[in-house]
Amino acid sequence: MHRVSYGTLSAVLGVLLVLTGLTVAVSYVDLGAFNVWLALGIASTKASLVLLFFMHIRDEGRLVVLSFLGTVLFLAIMIAFTFCDVAFRGHIGI
């Protein structure tokens, strides 16, 4: 299995810490609804870094990469489909 050097790992940690600082910093700026999406965007970036460098997801091959994305997609669909209901309550028709 692929070996990751200490240097790479530390660099990744550095980026993760910077991103943490960034997400705390932007939370003080009022961007309206955009704040949530920005926070989620930064969190997703951090999550991808952890997946790629700490969890070596790429070494596992296509099956794991695709099924992981599939799981996340399924979760997203779950949330989106639930919003078909809660976002449209009180409207008549489609």
Binding site: F81, C84, V86, A87, F88, R89, H91, I92
Partner: peptide, 16 residues
């Protein structure tokens, strides 16, 4: 992806 077809009368939205 079809779970809410158990809920047509539950008071959920028409869109759903």
């Amino acid at each position: 992806l079809v779970w809410a077809h158990h809920m047509y009368t539950s008071g959920m939205s028409d869109t759903a």
